[in-house]
Computed example of a mutant assay.
Amino acid sequence: MSTARTAASTLITVAPTGAETAKVDVPALPTTPEELVETAVACERAGAALIHIHVRGRDHQPTLDPVLLKEAVDGVREATDLVVQLSTGGAITDPLEQRLTVLDADPDSCSLTCGTTNFGDGVFLNPWGFMVDLYRLAQEREVVPEFELFELGHVHALRRLIDECGLPHGGKVHVDFVTGVPGSMPGTAQALLAGVAMLPPEVTSWSATGIGRAHLPIAAASLAAGGHLRVGMEDNLMFAKGQPVGHNSELVARAAQLATLLQRPPMSTAEARAALAIKDRRTR
């Protein structure tokens, strides 16, 4: 079992865009560089300390274009003090070799999914060799990975990664349980707590997100069990029954209110950087 202790405050991550939802279907989805920066500023103000970014092209489609990735990182970094995390998953159709180039954009953090998983009607491919290559590249670049766990088997893969590759840059191990994806781990408290019970002792912090209707139950379970929160329109497009999310900051503000009610108020960006051992890449 992980030795990670209940934190006095809560790391709130916002995942504002993702790669699955079409802009034409959800106009409020931030897909342009300007919308991304505006979203980052508003979400930092609402209580987020970390932003998980999927980049879209001028056509609003998911892209791993290196110029646009760097533009996103630099834009958010200049406008906020948020920890800037890039997704290395991209869209599930992106080739593995191209996904490794995400770190060229010099983010503070990157996602590292700990195994292949069913993803709706598709398959999110993360073979062992790719995981090791990404982990070692992150260590070399001094980028802190967030280990994304979609399945209980991914917890075992994390154990194997640490055994083979050692600790990440800075020595902290932060994981995020992504629950409720069709075909993967269900968005239930029982499944989440089973995963938490399996975490290696090297894990220093963990968060969780629930897709769609699992959003609030997983947030409540995570906070109650000492975990942190990920929210955002990548994972959930409805604020309440019959009420679409109008802006990512609405989800962040609700998460911050929930965390504060449970006497674990939102972490500041400085606290998040210390908790995750983030290398300071800011120049201002």
Score class of each variant (00 low, 15 high):
Gly122Tyr: 14
Ala275Tyr: 07
Ala272Arg: 03
Arg136Ser: 09
Gly195His: 02
Glu38Val: 15
Ala214His: 13
Val173His: 01
Glu142Trp: 09
Phe147Trp: 09
Ser249Gln: 12
Lys70Phe: 03
Leu237Thr: 01
Glu250Lys: 03
Gly90Met: 04
Ala42Pro: 03
Ala91Arg: 11
Asp163Leu: 01
Phe124Gly: 10
Gly226Glu: 15
Arg5Tyr: 14
Leu161Ala: 07
Arg99Asn: 12
Leu199Lys: 06
Thr283Met: 13
Ala224Asn: 05
Ala220Ser: 14
Met131Arg: 13
Ile53Arg: 01
Pro217Lys: 09
Arg213Cys: 08
Val155Tyr: 03
Leu158Asn: 03
Thr113Asp: 14
Ala46Met: 10
Leu223Ser: 03
Gly183Ser: 06
Lys241Glu: 15
Asn118Trp: 11
Thr93Pro: 02
Ala91Phe: 07
Leu262Glu: 10
Val26Asp: 10
Ser207Tyr: 02
Thr117Lys: 10
Gly89Asp: 04
Met185Thr: 10
Pro30Phe: 09
Glu20Trp: 06
Gly170Met: 07
Glu271Ile: 03
Gln243Asn: 09
Ile211Glu: 01
Leu237Phe: 08
Met267Pro: 11
Leu161Phe: 12
Cys43Trp: 12
Ser222Gly: 12
Pro244Val: 06
Gly120Val: 08
Lys172Ile: 05
Gly187Arg: 08
Asp59Arg: 11
Val55Glu: 14
Leu112Gly: 00
Thr113Ile: 02
Ala224Gly: 05
Gln61Leu: 13
Arg284Thr: 00
Asp25Arg: 03
Leu261Thr: 12
Arg282Ile: 03
Ala270Pro: 07
Met267Glu: 03
Leu29His: 12
Leu262Met: 13
Pro66Phe: 12
Arg213Met: 10
Thr117Tyr: 10
Asp235Ile: 04
Val203Gly: 06
Arg45Ala: 15
Glu250Arg: 01
Phe150Ile: 00
Thr204Gly: 09
Val144Asn: 11
Glu164Leu: 03
Phe130Met: 05
Leu137Asn: 04
Ser184Pro: 00
Val55His: 09
Thr116His: 13
Val123Lys: 15
Thr179Trp: 14
Glu34Phe: 10
Pro107Met: 00
Gln263Gly: 09
Asn248His: 03
Arg45Gln: 15
